[in-house]
Simulated scan of single mutants.
Amino acid sequence: MPAKAKTILIWLLVIFVVYAIYTSPDRASEVVRALWDVIVNAVASFGAFLGGLVG
């Protein structure tokens, strides 16, 4: 992907995120909380997997 196109897409994403937070902060916080839960569960599952390999 050309560098200019990548830069434009990143800026569009940032603008969209700011707009989403501004127009609906409650919904935006729910989305962030859900993403955080997914990340935490993935790390915990990976840790359990490694623990099962070692133990």
Rank of each mutant, 00 (worst) to 15 (best):
T23R: 11
N41L: 10
W36H: 04
I8F: 04
A3Y: 10
L9R: 14
K6G: 08
V43K: 06
V54H: 05
F46T: 13
F46P: 03
G55A: 08
I39V: 15
D26K: 13
L12S: 07
V17W: 02
W11I: 12
V14S: 04
L12A: 09
Y22G: 00
K6A: 15
Y19M: 02
A42F: 08
S29E: 04
N41H: 09
R27Q: 12
K6T: 15
A20I: 01
L53V: 11
V18C: 05
T7H: 10
L53P: 03
T23C: 06
I8K: 03
V14P: 01
V40P: 00
T23H: 12
S24E: 12
F16L: 08
M1V: 11
R33P: 00
L13F: 11
A3P: 05
D26Q: 08
Y19H: 03
K4Y: 09
I10M: 12
I15Y: 02
A3M: 06
F16M: 05
I10P: 03
V43E: 08
W11V: 10
A3E: 08
V31R: 02
R33G: 10
V43F: 07
K4S: 15
S29Q: 07
I15N: 01
Y22N: 01
G55I: 13
G51T: 06
F46L: 15
V43R: 08
R27T: 09
G51M: 11
G55L: 15
N41T: 11
Y19W: 13
L53G: 07
L12K: 14
D37H: 07
I21S: 01
A48L: 13
A42W: 07
G47N: 15
A20S: 03
A48H: 06
I15E: 02
A5K: 13
F16D: 00
F46A: 14
L13D: 00
S45E: 06
A20F: 02
G55M: 07
F49S: 02
V40R: 04
Y19D: 02
G55V: 12
I39R: 04
G55N: 15
A34T: 11
V38R: 11
L35P: 00
V43M: 07
R33Y: 09
P2D: 14
P25L: 02
A48T: 11
A48V: 14
R27F: 13
L12F: 05
A42K: 08
